[in-house]
Amino acid sequence: MKWSAQPIKHRSEARIGVIFEKDVDLIHRIKQIPDARWSPQKKMWHIPDTRENRERFHITQEQNHQLSSEGKEHLQLFIRWLSSKRYSPNTIKTYSEGLRLFLIYYRSKAIDELTNDDVLNFNNDYILKKKLSASYQNQIISAIKLYFRTVRETKIEADKIDRPKKSKILPNVLSKEEVKNILEAHANIKHKMMLSLIYSCGLRCSELLRLKPLDIDSKRNIVLIKQAKGKKDRITPLSPKILELLRVYYQLYKPKTYLFEGQEPGSNYSVKSLQSVLKHAVQKCNIKKPVTLHWLRHSYATHLLESGTDLRYIQELLGHNSSRTTEIYTHVSTKSLQHIKSPFDDL
């Protein structure tokens, strides 16, 4: 007799769904299980999700993390669509993982039957209960909205799916003295060069590691950053001091494909190795803050603002789509605050 069983959610309750061809004997036997119920909507019997019932129907823990056959098919459709639109590998990975998590949660429900209430229940009963971050929740919502708006026509109205309220977190910024100490910590010119270029040009880690020798225009004193976040090219000024360092570095290492290469000629320098370079520099400076590579980019933007650079230029240099993203640096700049006298001084 053929039957199948899998963990399901029924009205936010953990159950085990059991599907089999109509058989009087099996119906009689499943009715003997306490709290066994028939679901006309799901067209299956379902029973409490207990250890005893899992053993009875040979359900393994791994089944909680598996897509249904329909879910697998539609996840592949989504990945193919993202690829055809030339989304970056990181975005494809993030969005497909977000959709996969949602489809696993509703693996016992036909995708055509999913509604906005299911998205709401998923947020409340899975994301919030597991205390996952608002940014992670936002990534999953982005994936769901994109999939059901562009790839799949269902009962879900993507435009009516709300995003979580964003936390207003200020960027972490180092003082100029701290930056100087970090950049001078390494005697190795390659390590010094990588950290210095991130700060002096406000680069993202991925942008630095994709740079090629021809992206450095020494005659115009600019760095060309190709196909950065959002598939955009941009240019940023090249400091004369950095150019001098680059010439020394180039003579020593003679990079072939990428400006900064790994142990194998022509290979990318790894993100993990670059993070390690920064970590050792911070340790040498005895800085106790949890400094990351992105802190150097934040510090670059804040120091530009404090030196009087117009916010619109900073937006262009950083490659931000919206000026609202760049405006966050006005909240961490201390230039104006330093002129404010505390009433405590008058006591």
Rank of each mutant, 00 (worst) to 15 (best):
I198A: 08
I156A: 04
I182P: 11
I198S: 11
D159F: 02
M193P: 01
S196Y: 08
A187S: 14
A187H: 13
S167Y: 08
L195E: 12
L208S: 07
L195A: 02
I198P: 12
C201G: 07
K168C: 00
I182S: 04
R163K: 14
M193I: 06
L208M: 10
A185F: 10
R149H: 14
R204M: 06
T150D: 15
K176N: 06
C205L: 15
C201I: 05
S200V: 02
M194V: 02
E207R: 02
K166Y: 02
N188F: 01
N188D: 15
I161K: 07
E207A: 03
A158M: 07
F148R: 08
N188S: 12
V151Q: 14
L208N: 11
L197D: 05
I198L: 11
Y199M: 13
S167Q: 15
E157M: 05
S196T: 15
K165W: 01
I169D: 13
R149C: 00
L174S: 07
L174P: 09
S175T: 14
R210S: 14
R152G: 01
C201A: 15
P164D: 11
I189N: 10
K190C: 06
A158Y: 11
A185C: 11
E153G: 01
H186K: 09
I169Q: 15
R204H: 04
F148E: 11
V173N: 09
E177I: 08
L170S: 05
L195V: 03
I161N: 08
S175H: 06
M193A: 15
S167I: 02
S175G: 02
H186I: 00
K176M: 11
K160V: 00
G202P: 09
L174H: 03
D159T: 00
R152I: 01
Y199E: 11
Y199I: 03
G202L: 07
I156D: 10
K155L: 12
N172D: 14
G202W: 07
I198G: 12
D159A: 09
K168P: 01
I161Y: 07
I189G: 06
A158H: 12
L170C: 03
S206F: 02
L197R: 07
K165V: 04
K165D: 04
I182A: 07
I156W: 06
D162Q: 12
G202I: 06
F148Q: 08
